[in-house]
């Protein structure tokens, strides 16, 4: 199963909403990386904007950017992956339940507190009443949404799927984290098609999720894709600065990837969050199209050929491990 990338729309802690993937914004020393948001009035009507919480603006803004970048092409499926979804409005709603003794509750935080609110609102705004699904699987949420899209497109009943990964920063959740890492947020949407949009279409060749996998899962994944590890032009690793999380990546760097492998990292640019791999996919797709990765993302330069075969590996708290193979 595979799909072709027609367009992306990304709102992140970098100026990606302007399709600027130079990743030049300095993030060193920051504990929290908030998303840099566009002027939503150019993307969402003021009437609709009025009741939207921040995560809704992030998600719907990114979805609209993606559709605009595709020249207005309409999807026939909307699929979203999210770890915590509209967690801030959920907190407001739960707090008001406690404070008012379940009486006189405002409807707006309730409407904005559901996990599938973003996918539903995107469908309502784009007037798309076909397949609509939201996947919440902690650190593999975005990849599960992608898998859903790949299966839909494989069945050929749908031609275009709009797939998103969204999560917003929550101070409450941040305070509960046992180990503090640079925490971010973002919304990335991708219009996927069963056919290439042009000669240089980036292809999502394979996506796989694992829960607490064994030793050889990357080797087995690459073997299934008939891609020897030395053929990879770059590997994007989800290093987040936490020594115990990063030890997993360092073991692979030392023992699995050839010494000349170009290594790319991205969480110092977008922060850690459940669907940060949506940022990684957008970065990989943009870099394949541009022929190079932005300098701030290069962890180890390795081979210098234009990136064509790129592996994305991420894990969330060493439980949810995910792999994507993206090719030019």
């Amino acid at each position: 199963m595979h799909a072709y990338l027609t367009s992306t729309g990304l709102i992140s802690p970098q100026r990606t909403f302007e399709n600027d993937f130079s990743c030049g914004l300095q993030t060193e020393g920051a504990a929290i990386l908030p998303a840099i948001e566009p002027d939503y009035r150019g993307l969402i009507s003021p009437v609709q904007l009025r009741r939207m919480s921040r995560i809704l603006k992030l998600g719907i803004g990114a979805a609209q950017l993606c559709i605009n970048n595709a020249g207005g092409l309409q999807p026939d499926a909307i699929i979203v992956g999210t770890g915590l979804a509209c967690v801030n409005d959920l907190e407001i709603f739960l707090k008001s339940i406690i404070e008012t003794g379940e009486q006189s509750l405002s409807s707006i935080p309730f409407i904005n507190s559901l996990h599938n609110t973003v996918a539903a609102q995107v469908a309502r705004i784009l007037k798309i009443q076909t397949y609509n699904n939201t996947h919440c699987h902690r650190g593999a949420s975005f990849e599960n949404a992608l898998l859903d899209a790949l299966m839909l497109l494989h069945e050929k009943e749908h031609k275009q799927a709009l797939v998103g990964g969204i999560d917003e920063f929550s101070m409450h959740y941040y305070n509960l984290l046992p180990a503090k890492v640079v925490t971010g947020e973002g919304a990335g949407f991708f219009l996927l098609s069963h056919l290439p949009a042009g000669k240089n279409s980036v292809k999502i060749s394979a996506v796989r999720t694992f829960y607490a996998p064994g030793e050889d899962f990357i080797a087995r994944f690459l073997a299934e894709q008939h891609t020897p590890v030395h053929q990879l032009d770059a590997v994007l690793l989800g290093m987040n600065g936490n020594p115990s999380d990063d030890a997993v990546y360092h073991r692979l760097i030392d023992n699995f990837f050839p010494p000349d492998t170009r290594l790319i990292t991205y969480k110092h640019l977008c922060g850690e969050y459940h669907t940060s791999s949506a940022f990684a996919l957008a970065l990989a797709a943009h870099s394949i199209a541009a022929g190079a990765f932005p300098a701030p993302a290069v962890f180890k330069p390795g081979k210098s050929a234009k990136p064509q075969k790129v592996l994305l590996y991420n894990h969330y708290q060493n439980c949810n491990h995910t792999l994507m193979l993206v090719t030019g």
């Binding site: 009741r51 006189s104 509750l105 405002s106 409807s107 707006i108 409407i111």
Partner: peptide, 13 residues
């Protein structure tokens, strides 16, 4: 209609 609910709440609160 959602605004109507909020206005009713406003009168109550």
């Amino acid at each position: 209609s959602i605004d109507a609910l909020e206005l009713i709440l406003l009168l109550e609160k």
